[in-house]
């Protein structure tokens, strides 16, 4: 991805977001009382103004992108194996989704142990034993701090109930 591509994609994205907000999102999801006398004081004014400025910023990005040289240096994050890297990112997204599903069911401590293990093996840790030990100890230590010192009601699941 070159600087020009970054600028053009950002500009197009910002423009699309602005159009979506103005045409659909704001009329649909922002409510305003019918008796507001002046548009400036309406709850709709600020989102519309920001959407308008976002559109202008998008246009500006496209305009400046058009003026850039098409064959500039690449600005992507370096990686030896992009295919595997994308797979790992998808794996991380899956871990996050599963975390949200498991948190109310297994509780914070067990879920975090699983999250720790899954993410350590996702990045191919060279210390598997340390990873397993840390996966057990760190969530327990954090539980002890937040539940007993900070007084936070850490969710507990049906399988494991801690004091």
């Amino acid at each position: 991805m070159t600087q020009r591509q970054v600028q053009m994609r950002l500009g197009t994205g910002a423009l699309l977001v602005a159009i979506f907000l103005i045409i659909y999102a704001i009329p649909q999801w922002v409510s305003s009382p019918s008796n507001v006398g002046n548009i400036i004081l309406s709850p709709l004014f600020w989102p519309y103004a920001l959407a308008g400025f976002t559109g202008l910023a998008g246009l500006g990005l496209i305009f400046s992108g058009v003026r850039m040289a098409p064959d500039g240096p690449r600005v992507d994050a370096p990686c030896d194996t992009p295919g595997l890297a994308w797979l790992r990112l998808a794996g991380m997204a899956a871990i996050m989704v599963v975390t949200m599903v498991l948190l109310p069911r297994l509780g914070m401590v067990l879920t975090c142990m699983l999250v720790f293990l899954a993410s350590a093996f996702l990045v191919r840790t060279r210390h598997p034993v340390t990873a397993v030990v840390c996966a057990v100890i760190i969530p327990l230590v954090l539980y002890a701090f937040f539940a007993h010192i900070a007084g936070v009601a850490i969710p507990q699941g049906e399988i494991l109930r801690l004091p």
């Binding site: 990045v123 191919r124 840790t125 210390h127 996966a135 954090l142």
Partner: peptide
């Protein structure tokens, strides 16, 4: 400190820390 141990630890710390603000799993999402 192995980075591939540190990063999962940071992730777990983030989950606990964000939950602790309002006791709300929605915030973790």
């Amino acid at each position: 400190i192995p980075k591939r141990i540190l990063i999962p630890a940071v992730l777990v710390l983030c989950i606990y820390g964000v939950f602790a603000v309002n006791n709300n799993i929605f915030d973790v999402g």
